[in-house]
Write a protein that binds this DNA or RNA. Structure first.
Lengths: 146, 146
DNA sequence: CTAAATCGTAATAAACGAAGTTACATGAAG
DNA sequence: CTTCATGTAACTTCGTTTATTACGATTTAG
């Protein structure tokens, strides 16, 4: 099953943007996200709609973070992306009248709901600022080694 | 995103098999799983490899549950199906050398691992016997209403 | 005002995986 | 031996996601 890696991708982009604190074009972001400019605009456009970044057109245009790094969490990003489905496994739900199916669905749905709640809770606890700090820690360690 | 509903499907099939305690052919199971016989053999074959069901060829052949309903859990079924990916969201993991990516992955991986552990734990607590009992409860309630 | 750079977005193509289908081989029952 | 059912390989179909193309809209520089 193919995974949706947009959350991972926009995090990558946002941290890069946080580092250099300047406008970055879709083209530049496309390179660091291993994709192409149109896909970047499509994805970053969702973040813009959520007020997390701003975009500017024309020469010297590009993308910039518009929110407080301390306040933006992974959950905010997940929501900005349209809350894509979390699970790759799910119910069949093709015969809702079947009592067997109802019993099966009841058992599975409860477990999935709990796991989803846990995941979203974890997401809500990670801010961009924490990730940025983590990156800087790694960066310092990396420089110290070399 | 398209979901893998095989776990749901085989549960449906197994509960039907548990009800009638007789051999069921791939054709019969295909009908109650809303699919076709070849897909049933493919999927049930995985359960057979795990020792959960047996198959018999020839006239009067078919599929039968081979394990104790009290002992088989959803987790066993999940494993028998090859432990398919649980999450539809994941890391990009295309530039493992990038320190930004490492920071992002570390944050996401921890959250996913915990949610997965919770889900599998819940799966391990649901036996086929419990599901069957739940079905019978619903069945009784349904008959009482009509 | 014009030219160049950049985003915005629709339309289309390509890629991929899952499921469905066909075909035929294998084995068991009577 | 004939029939019925599974076993499995090969192929096709389908749906979704991502990539690409194309062009419009907007902004800056000179």
């Amino acid at each position: 099953m193919k995974r949706d890696s947009r959350l991972s991708s926009v995090l990558h982009a946002l941290l890069h943007m946080a580092e250099q604190k300047e406008l970055m074009t879709s083209e530049q972001l496309a390179i660091c996200m291993c994709t192409n400019p149109v896909v970047v605009r499509r994805t970053m456009g969702l973040l813009r709609d959520a007020g997390l970044v701003t975009s500017a057109r024309g020469p010297s245009g590009g993308w910039m973070i518009a929110a407080d790094l301390e306040k933006v969490t992974l959950r905010d990003l997940h929501e900005a992306l349209g809350e894509p489905a979390i699970f790759a496994i799910g119910n069949r739900n093709e015969s809702p009248g079947c009592l067997v199916e109802q019993a099966v669905n009841a058992a599975l749905d409860g477990a999935f709901a709990d796991a989803e709640a846990l995941l979203l809770d974890r997401f809500a606890k990670v801010t961009l600022a924490k990730l940025s700090a983590d990156f800087n820690r790694r960066h310092a360690a990396h420089r110290a080694r070399s």
